[in-house]
Amino acid sequence: MSDNHNSAGGVPTTGHVWDDDLGDFVNQPPKWWMLGLTASILWVVVYWVLYPSIPFSTSGDFTKGIGLPGTGQWTAIKELEADTADLDAVRGQYEDQLKNLSPEAILADAKLTGYIERSGKVLFADNCAGCHGQNGKGTMQVGVKFKQQEQGYMAPILLDDDWLYGGEIANIHETIVGGRQGMMIAHKDILSAAEIQTLAEAVVKGQPTSTPLFAEKGCTGCHGADGKGMAAMGSANLTDKVWRFDGSLAGVIQTITYGVNSGDPKARIAVMPNFTAAGKLSETEIKKLAVYVYKFGGGKPAVAAVPEVAATSGVAAGSEVAAAPVAAAH
């Protein structure tokens, strides 16, 4: 083809021809490109001198590189330490105090509490919200997909003032440090279907004591003579109509029949992991979380007991109380 031997610029081709009309001009690569190529090679060499890149050295390890002028040898861990130092410069003022203070003391300090209300967010969301829901509003189990005994809340709502183990900062802290596994025995072999029916009806009305069975059958042993629950063993308050599990008649029958963590295959499960054992959260982080949860609004002062709010249902109670404290936190 004519093209091949006299191109636009009059540059010849190599003279080689393939497939009738394929050829290549003898143009030089552009100057900037040749310079770039040289620069690239130099760059690699320089980089190899500065950074650890050569997998052998007299030390039997690899060559560590001399590092950038002033900064010294580069390692990923040094970089981490430097970045963490910058961070500690900002949060150190708070964190250092938190280390030595008890949760109660922290709560007493407005500045520290303010810090935690802000900084606890990701800590709670990434570690706790999976079970307790964003901002502790609970995660309702969708019944359709789960078998009956899995209905109710994955874990207690944390922003209401209804507590299984007590709402004082110390109780909350204790829960997170050691985890919880409330136990309620299965009654399927102890009680007749009829008795369970009676108890359930009473409980659903929020008046467990309205039936003598409640005391006779030993419910009071755990839920107290008044049925308001015992913080010591995390037994639920059965009079406030705030339901941890399923508050429907069928649901309550389920709970009574098979119990909670009772070992019965159909028992309801209630396991709060032990975050000390898991080893992922530091002591300070656990303290922060205790205060953070307390500050959802449900926390109770160490001394006086706050009057009961007669909440209509778990969900409602959750959302009502949700509004106030969460808004306050931001």
Partner: peptide
């Protein structure tokens, strides 16, 4: 999804059971 390298002990078996079966029911 998040890194899982240090997941051990973070949740209860029951949570995993629910989450793995129907993640959107818990998250």
């Amino acid at each position: 999804g998040p890194d899982l390298a240090r997941l051990g002990g973070k949740y209860s078996d029951e949570w995993h059971r629910k989450h793995l079966k129907y993640p959107r029911d818990v998250v």
